[in-house]
């Protein structure tokens, strides 16, 4: 289906696993390692979906999410938040800011792909 996914994650080993998982499902993957880089790449390349970690250097995930949702050019790009912070208040904040879905770490490849496919389908 050739969809382009931007993975925003600073943990190299997670990047490795998620990248292999997404590629094996026929998705294209680009990576940003912090919130600033993420905003730049989202603006430049307009991915079909963003996978966003919350705890990151420079600009954290919730702030990055807020910025991209406030930007007319990027506000319709769906975002799935992937985070170690699984408390209900974090989920609520991310959803209030416009995230499409939320996955608590650790997640399995099949679960991740299922949510990605569902969100991509909802958009189109």
């Amino acid at each position: 289906m050739n969809k382009r996914i931007l993975l925003v994650e600073d943990e190299k080993n997670i990047v490795l696993g998620v990248t292999i998982c997404l590629r094996s499902a026929g998705l294209q993957v680009d990576v940003a390692e912090d919130g600033m880089e993420a905003l730049r790449k989202i603006e430049e390349s307009k991915p079909d979906l963003v996978l966003l970690d919350l705890v990151m250097p420079k600009l954290n995930g919730l702030d990055a999410l807020k910025s991209m949702k406030e930007n007319e050019a990027t506000k319709d790009i769906p975002v799935i938040v992937l985070s170690a912070r699984a408390q209900e208040e974090d989920i609520q904040r991310a959803m209030d800011l416009g995230a499409s879905d939320y996955m608590a770490k650790p997640y399995k490849p099949a679960e991740l792909l299922e949510v990605i496919m569902r969100v991509l389908e909802d958009v189109h």
């Binding site: 943990e11 080993n13 997670i14 490795l16 696993g17 998620v18 292999i20 998982c21 094996s24 170690a84 912070r85 699984a86 608590a104 770490k105 650790p106 997640y107 399995k108 490849p109 099949a110």
Partner: peptide, 16 residues
């Protein structure tokens, strides 16, 4: 919370 990141890469790698 800190345990969840390494656990994620372990779970992903093993499943794949």
């Amino acid at each position: 919370h800190e345990f969840r990141n390494p656990l994620t890469s372990i779970v992903m790698a093993v499943e794949l």
